[in-house]
Nucleic acid binder design. Sequence first.
DNA 1: CCGTTTGTTCCATTCTGCGGAACGTAGTCC
DNA 2: GGACTACGTTCCGCAGAATGGAACAAACGG
Lengths: 260, 260
Amino acid sequence: MSALTNAIDILRCFSTSRPDLSFADVQVLTGKPKSSTSRLLRSLRDCGLLEQDPHSRRYRPGLLTFELGRLHRAHDDLIATAERELRDVCARTGHTGYIAVLDGYQQVVLRIVPGSNPLRVVNPPGQRTPAIITSNGRAMLARLSDQEIRARVPLDYPKVPANSPQNFPELMARLNEIRRTGISDAADEAIEGVGSQGFALASGESGELIGIAVSYSVQATTEIERANVRRELGAMAAKLRRMTGDPLGQTIEQLAGLAS
Amino acid sequence: MSALTNAIDILRCFSTSRPDLSFADVQVLTGKPKSSTSRLLRSLRDCGLLEQDPHSRRYRPGLLTFELGRLHRAHDDLIATAERELRDVCARTGHTGYIAVLDGYQQVVLRIVPGSNPLRVVNPPGQRTPAIITSNGRAMLARLSDQEIRARVPLDYPKVPANSPQNFPELMARLNEIRRTGISDAADEAIEGVGSQGFALASGESGELIGIAVSYSVQATTEIERANVRRELGAMAAKLRRMTGDPLGQTIEQLAGLAS
DNA sequence: CCGTTTGTTCCATTCTGCGGAACGTAGTCC
DNA sequence: GGACTACGTTCCGCAGAATGGAACAAACGG
């Protein structure tokens, strides 16, 4: 375990559900001795990756993470292009749009396009979710080789909501359907009462892979409306794939992002 | 030099003006041997703090920085309160609002409230600027003790635009004026043709210090309009200081953020 | 006033990270 | 096509940074 590895282990304890942590929290979550925890937290604070609230003494991500986070994919063509198209679709349909990337068997939300419908955004940018329980997450997985998928999904299949694939064969069945149709959907999975449809988009030149989804309230939409979303998404996918030179036939072998 | 220090030195090479870097860039900027650069970049990439474009082989901040950056001060009351008030002022005046924090003798933009006037935002969130050349930056410095200010500003005073304080005595004169009036202003400094007025706000309980500014085109505003902005800011400052229990009399001694 | 909780500092041991040098690997110029 | 150059990775012996148990300190509570 290098010093950097230990530092990262601490940083990975933070999440949207745990935006700040006490010394004890970190010690429990990392399982490291007190002395090591103390030294590492001090180092991280001194270098700006963490801040410490002077009153509560709790730690939170530091200014440096904010600065760097603002630079992440700030000039990414694939995402900018996709976001423009997604904005149009969301304006027409009123629903909320998401753009996410894959990291291991999880996805991370990068961009949100709020719709006009008052569906509160509970998946803010930075949100990490198992890819197997979202429409765009599964769409991204479907673009990988079967071998790659198996390597990413944990051996003991995670506990997932009732509507999500409950085991590896069920997952592969859903992914194969996505491979046929090009479109993925979900309902009542990550969030109760919320449905979504999505697809994956790859760049021909950079090999990047992103997942795009439109999400809506299941109760407040009719079958007709969902069919309309599907048409919109199909047109958007076709247009974007042309623009980005998406090599639809081949599977993507990403370099980074191993299963954790 | 610990491994973490070296890693941070690399991360600090990235900025809004350098959102991605090649191996050679990093080597030059850090002045480290090739072997060390190679190993460090690999480590940073493997742990998610950096990503590498598979085509150009250039490095950029990684997914982890994005996730953490979204958590930074996500639940900060002082900033949320200030942003709400600033939003009102910007809606009324049409100008662009900024909220920044101090880090050493520099400031970092945390929030932007776009105005209705079409003044292109050239200071995106995450932007780092010498605090001595902005209205809210000087307002924040003015809240520190003279000793603290001297410790933060580099010994060889930096080269600054013509309208900014050109040396330490000039700076102190401006800061003392801000201490008297409670309001700070700037014109044609960080950006040609842009002026701003601002103030600093401290929280009574947490000891946090933030700088708030409203910025406008110098050419497109009249003296009358600028006086109006000043009144708006004065009222906003008074209201916010009451709400946050700002200890206006005392100087703030921040724990973190030494001069670099 | 003493026990408990919580976090920091100390210090001998270990093993990681360091950097010079050797080693690939392309690209480029005659 | 062959030598040269630019660029980056791997190797390896040594220095010194990181480690974690234990002692220490501080805050808290009954």
